[in-house]
Amino acid sequence: MILELKNVTKTFGKFAAVSDLNFSVNEGEIFGIAGPNGAGKTTLFNIISGFYRATGNIVFDNRKISHLGPDKINILGIARTFQIPLLFDSMTIYQNILVGSHFGGQGKSEVENRINEALSFFGLQELRAAAVANLKLLDKKLTMAAAAFATRPKLLLLDEPVAGLNPVEAELFVGLVKKLNREHGVTIIMIEHLMNILTEMSDRMMILNNGQKLIVGSPETVINDPETIECYLGNSHA
């Protein structure tokens, strides 16, 4: 078990975006999260990565992290991407990754190695000197993931990494995520709307609705669960 959440609740005013959530993620797995719009998925990532303070307890790698800020949490080994691509727009791809490599993670040595590894893993070697402001969406998403990877995370949170990509690009990205998991042993939590992608890659998955956990389990049990079908598959992605 690399990550465990106990009774985690986050409210905005009176509205509970995440309420009393309990689940855990095993080391080395790909853990998928799905749920309708506004279910609280991104909020959950913001809580785990330290951007929101929530009530309850979060333990990562046998350490309590619920009280830590985002930078500390990254240094302990959790990296993330954002649903809407965020990058350092005045910099090159190389410099974006340099930030992750230099400031993130624990080993302060090997900065160059980490950058090069990230660049070649995500196929960005050619573009390394390009300014990120004008990149196409796929390259932005790859750069964001590469910078996160350059912090050498044990756990990587991906928020809808393939949203907005065409099927070919999506497949490329999915392939990279699997490879990251298999070859580098990075545990992955991935939010995704498209059920077929999620069931195909996940070892286990969780459905969120109204900030609550509907079900956690293997892809088969989850998609055959009547509640899931009603809440999620029923209306949009059947």
């Binding site: 990296a79 400031f103 964001m144 910078a147 996160a148 912090t151």
Partner: peptide
């Protein structure tokens, strides 16, 4: 947010 998520204090 991106900077913080990459470990910058």
């Amino acid at each position: 947010p991106f900077a913080q998520s990459l470990g910058i204090n």
